[in-house]
Every structure is written in C-alpha cells, then in structure tokens.
Design a protein around this nucleic acid. Structure first.
Length: 348
DNA sequence: AAAATATCCAACCGCTAAAAC
DNA sequence: GGTTTTAGCGGTTGGATATTT
C-alpha cells in the first residue's frame, strides 16, 4: 500500500515516526490548517492524509477495539433515527450521517462507525449493496417529537444524583453554552463511566421516542437528491413519491424533542443567531415551507409561483421552555424540512 | 501445513460547501 | 460577484490478519 507519487507525497500506512511528528505538530499548533502540517512537520503527506490520520487514529480519547453491546445497541438506534433518512425514488444512494452518529458514541470516529456498520450490521441484516439502495425506497418511521423536560432523566451515582442532561446545554442555561461545539461533549473528554451513562441515557431517550412514533409513516424525499438531513419530508402534489404507497401524515405542530434538538446541536446554534426567534437566513441549513392558508391541496394541485418561492422563506423557530416547536407544519403538504446541510450547523 | 476465503479497518478518493481571495 | 482554496464528508479500496477448507 505504501508508495509515493511523482510529487513525492507518501501514501499508505503511517509509521511511528510520522505519527509522532503529526502528533507533536497538532499539540503545538492545534487542529486545523492542515495544509500547513506537511510544511511544519516535514512530512511527505498530503493535508488530507494528515487530517484523517489525526482524526481517526492519533486524536486523544479515541476508543479502539470491539464495539460493546451498548454501543452496538445505541448505534442501531441512532442509525434508525439519523441514518438512511433520505428516501429517493432515483438511484441515489442513501445518506447516512456517520459523523453525527459517531458524535454520540464516545470515543468512536465516523470511520469506525461506518466500517462497523458496513462490515457487520449490513451483513447481519442480509443487506447487500443492491438491497441497501432498495431500502431507501421503503418507508421510514418518524419519531413523533414532543416537548420534554430533562428532570426525569436523572442518573444515580455514588456521589449523589446527577442528571446527564445537566451536562448538556439547555436552551435556558447560558452558563453551559460557553464551550464551542459543546454538543460534542459526550464524545469528548468523558470518563468511561460517564460515557456508559451517556450511552444509557441515549438508549432511554430513543426507547421512549420509538414508543412514540408517528401513527402513520411518511416517505422522506429530497427532491434535489442531496442535502439530506435528519428528516426531509415532502408530501409532493406533483408525484415525486411513489404513488402506489399510501402516504399519510397526521400531525399538527411538529415538535422536536428538546434533548434531541440540543444534542444534535441546534440549541446552541439557534441561540447564536441574532434573535432567538429569527434564525434566517437558513438557506441550506434549515428550511421550511410555510403552510398554505388553504390547507391541504388536492392531489392534482400544481403549486403556484408564490408557493414555489415560499420554499426559500426564512424559517422561524418558536421556542418554549419545554421544547422547540415548528409552527409552520400544520399543513402536511407544506412540509419541507431539511434540518441538516452538508455541514454541521454547529460550525467548526 | 498450505491455500483459499472471509473479515477487519486504515487510508484514499471524489465530491460538496464554506471560506478566502 | 466570480474564482480558487480549504475543510469535511461518505463511499470505496486494498493490505493485513484470521478463519476455514
């Protein structure tokens, strides 16, 4: 595998000396500016290779070795919640946010998670690659979000009661929003006990969520075939969805669990906006189509120019102490949510 | 014991979006 | 406002190792 191209850039496995140089460099200059790393270290490696080696191997607190049962369990749940959320009627591959999932598995990298899933889980479920694509056309369960409180998520430890949620960043707790990328605290700098507890906490949360899913399944379609996110729901009057399926959506306001919201990073992110209620412009990060005044349109309804342009209307987030509510989702037809762009809205 | 096959996982590739110019 | 550069992502590849025949 080892080689060097015509530009003298080394490829293949890293040796200990290279690792040491890279580690020293990052410790001295910090993460980022990967293009400067080869210059700073004298390594004959491209910036991509340096970055990847650091993120997947050299970074502190990386958990190596086999996945524990808890981790596998959580991974499956998170995959169900966050992965394969895009349903496309084209042959576009499904979009799984491995980094997002890995972020909730303390010490695990996106590469780890991806490898694990692709080699173990996919096989276990009998899914070949062809089947993986097929799966994207199946319906997806949507967890019915609802307001929650953190208070009932208390974990007892030897030193007294401590809520895992206390370690998170509640919308109303400015003191805990100081740390950037704070939603990653579960994956970084946790003791193994804390890590275990956070896994348990996530399992509980997802268990509850699973019990509380939508009465009806809805298809998830990203009409552009990209920028898929946590959910991309589109009840499309023009027939982008498979007409043979029975698509229904029954919901008034769509609410996202406060914890999920927070852990996915939108709490701090929304908070960082100029006004707490106005998070526009959201463009590729978060969009919603305002509901039409006329309610659900007939099957053969052709959207007007105004309705089409409404796709780009800024999206207002209404917050309350118990959770976050998406006020525009009263009309199923109007749903067009794309919670994630290619980049994590937490920023980096 | 050796060859064949399966599994694991580190590393690379191609692409996209954001940032910088 | 357009172009280039940079960072980051998921998908894929292929070498190393383990297991089976």
């Amino acid at each position: 595998m080892e080689s060097a191209n015509s530009l003298g850039v080394r490829k293949g496995a890293w040796c200990k000396e290279e690792d040491a140089l890279l580690k020293n460099c990052v410790e001295q200059y910090g993460e980022g500016k990967w293009n400067l790393v080869p210059l700073r270290t004298g390594l004959s490696r491209c910036r991509k290779s340096c970055r990847l080696r650091w993120l997947n191997y050299l970074r502190p607190n990386i958990t190596r070795g086999k996945f524990t049962r808890d981790e596998v369990d959580l991974l499956m749940r998170l995959h169900k919640l966050l992965g394969n959320r895009q349903v496309s009627l084209t042959v576009l591959p499904s979009f799984v946010s491995w980094s997002l999932i890995a972020g909730r598995l303390p010490g695990r990298t996106a590469n780890d998670v991806k490898n694990f899933w692709n080699t173990r889980m996919e096989r276990k479920s009998g899914g070949g690659k062809g089947q993986a694509i097929q799966k994207t056309i199946t319906k997806a369960n949507i967890i019915r979000p609802r307001p929650r409180t953190f208070s009932n998520l208390t974990i007892q430890d030897g030193s007294g009661a401590a809520s895992v949620a206390d370690n998170l960043h509640k919308p109303n707790d400015p003191d805990k929003n100081n740390n950037n990328n704070n939603n990653n605290i579960m994956s970084e700098s946790l003791s193994s006990q804390e890590a275990e507890e956070s896994i348990r906490w996530w399992s509980n949360l997802l268990d509850e969520a699973a019990e509380d899913k939508f009465e009806n399944d809805i298809p998830l379609v990203d009409e552009k075939g990209k920028q898929a996110g946590l959910w991309t729901g589109h009840i499309n009057p023009e027939g982008l969805v498979d007409e043979e399926e029975d698509y229904l959506l029954a919901s008034d306001d769509l609410e996202l669990d406060a914890e999920v919201w927070e852990l996915l990073g939108f709490g701090a992110w929304a908070k960082a906006q100029a006004s707490p209620r106005d998070v526009s412009p959201l463009s590729s990060t978060l969009q919603a189509r305002p509901a039409t005044s006329s309610g659900t349109p007939p099957e053969d309804h052709v959207p007007t120019t105004e309705e089409e342009s409404a796709l780009d209307t800024p999206f207002l987030i209404q917050t309350n102490p118990a959770g976050y509510v998406f006020p525009y989702l009263k009309d199923p037809w109007a749903i067009r949510l794309s919670l994630f762009g290619r980049r994590d809205p937490r920023g980096s």
